[in-house]
Each structure stands twice: as C-alpha cells, then as structure tokens.
C-alpha cells in the first residue's frame, strides 16, 4: 500500500516538486531521494507544492529539515506552497513558519525566487 506520489517539474527559476497523498515514515525516503538528486544536479531552488498532500508526519517534516542548511549554504532555498489547513497546522505546531516561507500559491513561490536572483 503506498498512497503517495510526487512529480518533479524543472521550471524557471526553480524546480517544483508536487506531493500527493500521505507523507509519513514510509513514503518520506522517496522525497528524500528526489531532493538528493536535485542537489547532485546542482539545483538548489526548490518549491514544494502541497496542494494534493493529505497528510504529513514528522518524518516528512524531517526531510525538509535535513536538507535546508546545505541548500541555503549553496544559495538556494526550499519554499512551500498551497498547504491545506490540515497540513499547515502540523507545520505551525513545529514552528515551520519561522523557518520556511509558506506561500498560498506556487506562482508566488516561484516569483519569490525570481526576486532573489
């Protein structure tokens, strides 16, 4: 059983990863691998679209935590967009709004990267 999928879309000025379904300890490694590949390719500007994400646990949040330092050191960032109220509440409980920019729309997140460069 695996109700999780992700889609990578290399756009300008950032790569968009769209998540769907349940991000938990079982499915988090898939996201981890995807972000690792992006870093290997030198892509450090990342937008995570959470529009179709139904659920997130700390294992999922841990993936963002695990990479953010390296990504920012390399001049990039992870920006989050389109979280449902349910997913946003979990981010909020762990203080993510102080750590990450969480935008209501993917386009806004991409725009923020344009302003950065």
């Amino acid at each position: 059983m695996n109700n999780f999928s992700l889609k990578r879309d290399d756009r300008e000025p950032a790569t968009v990863i769209s998540l769907k379904g349940y991000l938990d300890a079982h499915t988090a490694p898939e996201l981890e691998e995807t972000i690792k590949s992006l870093l290997d390719e030198g892509k450090v500007k990342i937008v995570i679209n959470l529009n179709e994400l139904d659920y997130i646990s700390s294992a999922g949040l841990g993936v963002f935590m695990g990479f953010i330092e390296e990504i920012r050191d390399k001049g990039g960032d992870i920006k989050l967009a389109e979280a449902s109220d349910k997913v946003y509440r979990v981010f909020d409980l762990l203080g993510f709004p102080m750590l990450y920019e969480i935008l209501s729309k993917e386009e806004e997140a991409l725009k923020r990267f344009s302003e950065m460069s």
């Binding site: 059983m1 695996n2 109700n3 349940y22 938990d24 300890a25 079982h26 646990s57």
Partner: peptide, 8 residues
Amino acid sequence: SKTDNLEL
C-alpha cells in the same frame, strides 16, 4: 512493525 502499515 512495518512503516508500510502506518496508513492502516
């Protein structure tokens, strides 16, 4: 005890 079972 499999993570695959977390959803269940």
